[in-house]
Design a binder for these strands. Structure first.
Lengths: 194, 194, 194, 194
DNA sequence: GATGAATGAGCATTCATTCAT
DNA sequence: CATGAATGAATGCTCATTCAT
């Protein structure tokens, strides 16, 4: 089945951004890989930054949606914390190029509309996370760390490992590490311990 | 005291890379800020990528040297783990621009000689870390996680927090978080717990 | 009638190459003379060398085609040898700039695709010449010299004279010399004599 | 024995000019190959064109001197014509790089002092040749062709063959062809025949 | 929706040349 | 005589973007 021109362009752009970075990829590269004409690309998108923006928004949204879904479905606080970690790892393993694009600086230089949309996505996401963690902090199940530290301890190790993995510096299977990372996250966030 | 032309160029390049990214900074920008001529820049470096490479090698070396020094000076395993985290946070807070350059994609696209030199630095660094952790793993003080997971749990949360901080998405003081991050790192790496 | 952009660029390039040599002519010169934009030049050609290559291929092809046509039309061996010389002189006098470009080092530094195309042209040309001379050598009309010496004796004097003429070192009319050169060629190639 | 700096520079320049053409060779290339410093090169020569000029003058002088010497030593008109051809071929085979430099466009773009010196060399050379041929034309030994045609017939075939040989387009030994070329030259220049 | 020729500002890089040491 | 850091104009080339068809 032939995808729409728009999707062909997005796929080609993702591949080029992955290979050479957003700044290093030219419209000409995307044109060649997608099979579309220059004019057609500009018909569908306002320019290179808009393409990068569309990929970032789409990717981030997909990731965050899954993250919140895991929290909503979790039977316990512990399960929520651990399932979110497993989602993080799983999503990255499943969307390698998109993850590489997002994690390795793809969204860093967003501007204009894209930046606004990313901010809005993040705002809602953190609000959603907060509304799940806050009552559990009050209930004494999770440590009272503030949102920044909490997410750093929760996701930081997975993020760090994934970054090395995406950069090709690690041979081990990401999913093999998921259990350990999930366990560590719970140990860092739960109350008690020393 | 007037630094050497070479250092003036490096300093100017770092500032420009920080402000616009490596790809977004032009030689003309570096020339203007450094006060050197185009020809002089090319006399000292083979091109923009080489300048970026010199900064990456120099920065990474400085960071790693401090990290290993903290381990060497530590009176106990716990102190070593926690001091290393404090070094991580401290180095980033002290070398904001260099850290931003390194953490936000500066070294991701290294090629050729630069890549080789970075790999060599990393090889030696991880060997140094291993020679400190391995006996402590055997002594039952540190969990047996393998080098990748170990560093991810050790440094991941600090790295994640620092990244947000460097990107300006966090208001809190990094150093305020250091104690908490150091404690969390110890809790993740030490044996025992549930 | 307005020629195509491509032809305008080729004509301008030939004029500039003639005046300053390929290395001495800048794209800016070609741009100014052709009326095209830099981008347009690079849209039609891969670079300055490709333009030079296109001129060389086109020029050489035109020359060789005429040469072979004279041989094909010749009523006798003698007429063929002499008409070919007259074509040589005539073509150079008629396409001064193109001849200057080809004879004074234009094709010497061809690379890549251009070189391949020139080689192919030469291969076919010499095959064509051979298929005309070989039977006449066997019939005892032409001396048995081998292809290299044969063409050197046939065309060498005309080529040498033309080179001086194109370089402006000779005042005499080229065409006035044609009869003498044609006669000399026949005397050098025919069998008999001492 | 270590040659003088000046000679080292000339030798390096000739090699670079041969490989990349005068325009394509940079002072930096010559510096690297010669082992001299930029400053030293400019101490000995006024610039790249002066180096090329020195090579051209030196090479042309050497060639012409030998040519005239052969004429002076010749026992007969026939021997003079043929020995000159043998000298032409021999000199080229012996000074490949210098010949390549001179024949393949090296002297074409000479300017200023160099051009004046080359003109002077050529003036004296042609006067010398004339003073040898003129009486022999008057004596009815050589055809009355005028100086341009005479040299074209005399040297043209050798020049043409040499050019192909220097460009690597011919496998045969140049010196093997010398006898045939010498014979052909005599047949073209001598009186009599049809 | 699609095409590709055309545009021209902008950029990295080269290079001959100078000059203080 | 030799050195090599410094200069800056010149150049080839890229690239995002427009627009007529």
């Amino acid at each position: 089945m032939s995808r729409s021109r728009r999707d062909q362009i997005l796929a080609a752009a993702l591949a080029e951004f992955t290979a050479h970075g957003v700044a290093g990829a030219s419209i000409e590269d995307i044109r060649r890989r997608s099979g579309a004409s220059v004019g057609s690309i500009y018909h569908h998108f306002d320019g290179k930054d808009e393409i990068a923006g569309a990929l970032a928004v789409e990717g981030l949204g997909s990731y965050q949606q899954g993250f919140l879904a895991r929290l909503a479905d979790a039977r316990s606080t512990r399960a929520g914390v651990q399932d979110a970690v497993r989602h993080h790892i799983g999503w990255i393993a499943e969307h390698r190029d998109l993850a590489r694009f997002l994690l390795l600086g793809g969204d860093a230089r967003a501007t204009g509309t894209t930046q606004r949309r990313l901010r809005e996505l993040n705002r809602r996401f953190f609000a959603g996370v907060q509304s799940w963690t806050a009552p559990r902090v009050r209930a004494g199940e999770l440590r009272d760390l503030g949102p920044e530290l909490l997410t750093a301890l929760w996701i930081g190790p997975s993020q760090e490992l994934a970054r090395h993995w995406l950069a090709g510096r690690i041979q081990m299977s990401l999913t093999d590490a998921a259990t350990e990372l999930a366990g560590a996250a719970w140990r860092s966030l739960k109350t008690g311990g020393d």
